[in-house]
Computed example of a mutant assay.
Amino acid sequence: MSTAIEVKDLGVHFRRNRRGRRSFKDLFAGASRRSRPGEFWALRGVSFSVESGESIGVVGRNGQGKSTLLRLVAGVLLADEGEVEVHGGVAPLIELTGGFVGDLTVRENVKMTAGLHGMSRAEVAARYEDMIAFAELDGFEDTPYKHLSNGMKVRLAFSVVSQLDEPILLVDEVLAVGDKAFREKCYKRIDELLAEGRTLFFVSHNERDLRRFCKRGLYLDKGGLVLDAPINDVLDRYNADYTTR
């Protein structure tokens, strides 16, 4: 079995003010990686690997580095320390509605977004009807995206991204949105992708979803990796720690 994701001594820090990450001025001035006043390490010293076909759940309280880790794996953020190696393309089911253009129609957004994720025109044309049908947007294809309801926007985004052929799925709480019927469609679609041998890296607070999809878990606390174990053991440890605080 090959390695899909490898993380070695990973660290990333932020500033607590509006400037966010370090500026280019700081970088060119040779700014130290040691924390400065107003800075904090969102993650530090995190190491693990994920084999192809594994399903990994990431747990922890809010603000402990879970979504930051997911964005580092996705390539949205760059590490300040350590390395992230991803072997294969990723289908990012995170911030689903980001990247869609309000003034473009549903049809135009589907073609643009799928193309940006690497689909050829022929692939988009072949899967277009399936994407529209899954999103339940028949009759809205020429509607500007900005006029869709929030539920419609989420359905459309999930439909497009879940059609990608990338071997690694990055999922961040997207199953918490939408109505019950749509969530069940999402569950079924993820089951299908896992049955194809995709790798799942799943951040969630929903224990039911974590136990359903994941066999292994990572427990993050204060930016560090507390436990890497079977998902039931990780959730038991997390729940025990949470109730004693």
Rank of each mutant, 00 (worst) to 15 (best):
R155G: 07
A157K: 07
S159P: 09
S159R: 07
S159V: 07
V160N: 00
V161M: 11
V161L: 13
V161D: 05
S162M: 12
Q163W: 14
L164T: 01
L164I: 06
L164V: 01
D165P: 06
I168M: 03
I168W: 04
I168R: 00
L169N: 02
L169Q: 00
L170Y: 08
V171I: 14
V171L: 15
E173Q: 08
L175A: 04
L175N: 01
L175Y: 05
A176N: 15
V177Q: 12
G178W: 11
D179K: 11
K180S: 13
A181R: 12
F182R: 04
F182N: 05
F182S: 07
R183D: 05
R183F: 11
R183M: 12
R183A: 13
E184L: 15
C186H: 05
Y187D: 14
K188F: 12
K188H: 13
K188D: 14
R189P: 08
D191I: 09
E192V: 13
E192S: 13
L193K: 11
L193W: 05
L193T: 06
L194R: 09
A195S: 15
A195G: 15
A195E: 15
T199L: 00
L200P: 04
F201I: 03
F202I: 00
S204L: 07
H205P: 04
N206G: 07
E207A: 07
R208L: 11
R208E: 15
L210E: 01
R211D: 02
F213E: 01
F213Q: 04
F213T: 02
C214R: 03
G217Q: 00
G217V: 07
G217S: 03
L218D: 03
D221Q: 13
K222G: 11
G224T: 13
V226Y: 08
A229F: 03
P230R: 03
P230E: 11
I231P: 01
